[in-house]
Design a protein around this nucleic acid. Structure first.
Lengths: 126, 126, 126, 126
DNA sequence: GTGGTCTAGACCACA
DNA sequence: GTGGTCTAGACCACA
């Protein structure tokens, strides 16, 4: 499960937030399945050379948002029913796009065309 | 020109960045025209109750990106030729959207539909 | 006797404490009677899918508080004379309530009213 | 504002939670007023001899819950409109009390009487 | 000045 | 083994 995560310590967004966003997407996309055990704080810490508390902070936030379940003394698990926030992730991006496009005076048709073009070119990885 | 700007001191994004993004869009959209004098640091500061240093930082960044021109001793002006970055603004948002959609396993058709729906509903102001 | 207990592995309060509190209440309320044999550690463990050590810890704590009697080699039993702590359970909750109410500046009359209302609505199970 | 807070490093409840609960009550009770600047993380840390991160964690949680407002670079403030959770504080305690009383088979009248008695005796401080 | 993030490392309750 | 809390101390962006 760890092989999907990409951490960039140099990035502007804090490390713990990078983890939160990426793991949320892993769950929303079904890559991490409900009930799966999540890699332990220590494992992730060692794997990426990050302080355990940083991962701990990310996991806590994910539990608070409902993506993960915490059970005392046991490893965390992917929550049973991925929350509504899954769809929310896309909506946030759509909102930003529409906002920018309208401000720039670009019409829907052009945006749609650009979107289609980009869809072809852009690797899933980026 | 100030009436378009909306500053949210509570937001996660720093105030100076809010200014940078919004002013860049004002210029890209033609709302602020090439050659126009930009409102002085003091004016903006007073208008929004923000520290002048914050506006100053935003203006410097905008000048660096080529949106504004600084002339010693004179007020800043909107740059002659709005840079290529105008289109870049949209591309950044498109990139983020495509990335999320692909991760979630949503197909292009669905995204286009959602985009069209959102386009109708979303006010230019939001 | 087990059918009364409700364990929530997700809850913030440790499982062993959930057991302690609920069993103490079962005894205080007379549901579990003096002299009754208590379900074995293994039975409880199996029934709820909990680690036996967790139940063991709860039983020890209950014995220490005087709710249960341990007899070498024999199953534990409900203690002969339910301790004074029975009343104590209510007092603890009252203390917390009064503390909060006074801090919030709510008067006794209002609290009494709220209490009566809640008394009607709240199921015994909750 | 600091003189109201009482921290017990020995207590079972984590220090940061003690802070969260007490400050929430200070706000709900009107002792800390909307718009007031909150003592800085460093001040509280020094005052109680606690690590700044512990206070920081408490403040973040309070901001997340809506009790405090964070503004980048400026001191935190008590939020404009204390959230609905104010009433929630009392309800939580009431729920616990009713639950216990019913389990013990105590009737409403008795509980009310005990409540009144306790109300007289119990100091606001406890 | 402010809060936010991160590290390195300790100790804890819990299972 | 697990996650949760806390310390001491550093560095950062921001105002």
């Amino acid at each position: 499960m760890l092989s999907t995560l990409r951490i960039d310590p140099q990035a502007a967004t804090p490390i713990y937030l990078q983890l939160v966003q990426q793991i949320a997407q892993c769950i929303a996309s079904g890559e991490w399945r409900s009930g799966d055990e999540v890699p332990s704080v220590r494992m992730v810490a060692q794997r990426f050379g990050i302080n355990p508390m940083t991962i701990s902070k990310a996991y806590s936030e994910l539990a608070r948002q409902g993506w993960l379940m915490a059970q005392r003394g046991k490893p965390m698990r992917v929550a049973d029913c991925p929350p509504e926030e899954a769809k929310q992730l896309l909506q946030t991006d759509l909102h930003q796009l529409v906002y920018t496009a309208k401000r720039l005076g670009i019409d829907l048709q052009t945006v749609q065309a650009e979107l289609a073009k980009r869809w072809e070119e852009q690797d899933d990885r980026d």
